[in-house]
Design a protein around this nucleic acid. Sequence first.
DNA 1: GATACTCCCATCGATAGACGATGGGAACGC
DNA 2: GCGTTCCCATCGTCTATCGATGGGAGTATC
Lengths: 112, 112
Amino acid sequence: MGTRSAPPDLLPGTLDMLVLRILARGRAHGYGIAQHIKSVSEDVLQVGESSLYPALQRLLLNGWVKAEWGASENNRRARFYSLTPAGRKQLVTEREEFQRIIVAIQKVLENA
Amino acid sequence: MGTRSAPPDLLPGTLDMLVLRILARGRAHGYGIAQHIKSVSEDVLQVGESSLYPALQRLLLNGWVKAEWGASENNRRARFYSLTPAGRKQLVTEREEFQRIIVAIQKVLENA
DNA sequence: GATACTCCCATCGATAGACGATGGGAACGC
DNA sequence: GCGTTCCCATCGTCTATCGATGGGAGTATC
């Protein structure tokens, strides 16, 4: 024990926002969302499926996204998620709040 | 229930870094640290004492900070915390990692 | 037509971190 | 004396991430 394991994967509290953002581009299935986050972030952000699926459940429960079964690009059974209008609003809200906080943190980091 | 209460206060996982950053300026007591974060961030970041003291305990345990009792500016009994050399290193590490992740998140937010 | 590999779903248990509530004590102003 | 501000700290709850685990359905390989 002790030895630090790899990178912290991601910042708690930001996953929902990231997923909403990906879905703002169009429908996607869980596996694809995880891949996408990983690739766009150039491997810095790693979303495990055990973080992702609970997140998607939350988003469904809150009505930010809806889901429908279909076939993936590879002809496999997949569940496609997409944003609801409420989800779009939520994305805007979360982005603003996120930026607000990041700016504040940077202020502390720089200005003392 | 339901109605979201006020702002999310702060991003989980960033508190330790913020505290280390404050202490990099010089010794300070718990109450002062909380005030300082609040004021420098212009009230955006709100650190409750029930978040702060456990954080300070963690930092002590890890050897990033040390503590000594003394008298505050207002002549009250106070515990002053200050960075250890290990704490300075840790601050550098955490800042780098934080920036890495923030940049990655921004990439996702912007580039798709 | 078996085997292996990739894709895609999902849950469970452990762990950690932030927060509200709570409690106490000591200095200071009135 | 009494209230307010300052300063300490813990406990219980809640939420979220993560590792481990399990399964099933296509495709490719031999």
